[in-house]
Amino acid sequence: MSKILSIVERAYHGTLEEQDDTILWMSHILKNAGADISVLLRSNAVNYAVRGQDASGITIGGVPLSNPPKLDEDVQSLVGAGVDTYVVREDVEDRGINESELVEGITLVGRDGLADLFDAHDAIWHW
């Protein structure tokens, strides 16, 4: 089975459904289906790994969004499911995010380490 690196960089697709981000969701689905998949968060998607996100409280036209996305929990869930999950260290630092704010179990990788990470996988899915 090929080893897949799924790269997420576009972040916050909208808050209309619990499955945003849809690529995190798909990566988890594929892990459950038996895929050997890792996830790399880069660019703005590194913010998905920040603890304490809260997208609750949206009501539009009297219709509440009962199950908003919980992206930090989704990332934590990926880690818990055994998905090796990485964030790009410089992208974290550029955004003023402290390493201590990140969910547990996530691995920071420097930009100069990305080539090694690519080489360690058979396929790169750059969403």
Binding site: D112, L114, A115, D116, F118, D119
Partner: peptide, 8 residues
């Protein structure tokens, strides 16, 4: 990335 991958 292109340069880093080629360098390897």
């Amino acid at each position: 990335m292109a340069a880093d991958l080629a360098r390897k």
